[in-house]
């Protein structure tokens, strides 16, 4: 027992990949840290503890620390996930290995550059409403009506937080550098479902109608398995493929 009457926590072992590519001569290595577990501890709390008490240079990214913003994707014991909402109690053996998400440029340690990648996906998919009306809407009049179910359905596909888990778990992307990936397909599905967007199947075919698009997917379903928001990747990729076959 510790002094405040709480049972003493387990000693957790963190194995963390350390590498700062900005510093000449630095090499990737695994470093081990020991942390006493506290009640309700998440990987967010543990990493901050390590940084404040042991390793001031340790790099990682958290913003909302509530599973909302998608900043903290990393590979946790072999699986891409959001670190901020992963409780340490999830690991009965008490050993946690953390690696940066593969498939993105490494900034340092557990921090990767998802921003540039996601922007390029947005530009490729043109993830904005395409319509003449939307360009200069009259803001003084009643908004255009939308069926409530349609609005709900769009929201379901608009919930991606661009954490990058699907991208780093994608088997196809490892072989095909330009493969769009599940994030992009979800975005396409979202705008297809939106009646405000004028794009036709022929337009979409231009974006995803080849092997770097939806026909390249090898259906390994890393995306479906790892998506922290449980988005319906498998169903949507299959749907896009059927639609593009007919396009």
């Amino acid at each position: 027992m510790t002094t405040n009457g709480q049972p003493k926590g387990r000693t957790l072992v963190f194995n963390i990949l350390r590498f700062n590519p900005q510093e000449k001569g630095d090499k990737p290595r695994m470093v081990r840290y020991e942390v006493e577990e506290a009640p309700g501890m998440t990987i967010f709390i543990a990493l901050n503890h390590i940084r404040e008490q042991m390793e001031p240079s340790l790099q990682f990214d958290f913003v909302c620390r509530a599973g909302i913003c998608g900043s903290c994707g990393m590979v946790i014991n072999g699986r891409p996930d959001l670190a901020c909402r992963t409780l340490t109690t999830k690991f009965p053996e008490g050993e946690i290995t953390l690696m940066p998400l593969p498939a993105f440029e490494l900034i340092g340690d557990l921090s990767v550059n998802t921003g540039e990648f996601m922007r390029s996906v947005a530009e490729r998919v043109e993830s904005w409403i395409h319509s003449e009306e939307a360009k200069a809407p009259d803001l003084d009049v009643l908004e255009e009506r939308m069926d409530p179910d349609t609005a709900d359905a769009i929201y379901e596909l608009d919930r991606c937080i661009e954490c990058g888990c699907c991208i780093s778990a994608c088997g196809t992307l490892r072989m095909r550098e330009k493969f769009l990936g599940a994030r992009g397909f979800m975005s396409v599905a979202r705008f297809m479902a939106d009646p405000r967007d004028d794009r036709t199947d022929a337009d979409w075919y231009e974006v995803i109608g080849d092997d770097d698009g939806v026909f390249g997917c090898m259906t390994l379903l890393g995306c479906e398995d790892t998506c922290p928001k449980d988005l319906p990747h498998q169903a949507k990729i299959a749907y896009l493929r059927r639609r593009m076959v007919k396009a």
Partner: peptide
């Protein structure tokens, strides 16, 4: 809010 509706926000509907 109407501008954002035009830009794609799927506001919940009546």
């Amino acid at each position: 809010i109407r501008e954002l509706a035009g830009w794609g926000v799927p506001w919940s509907r009546v």
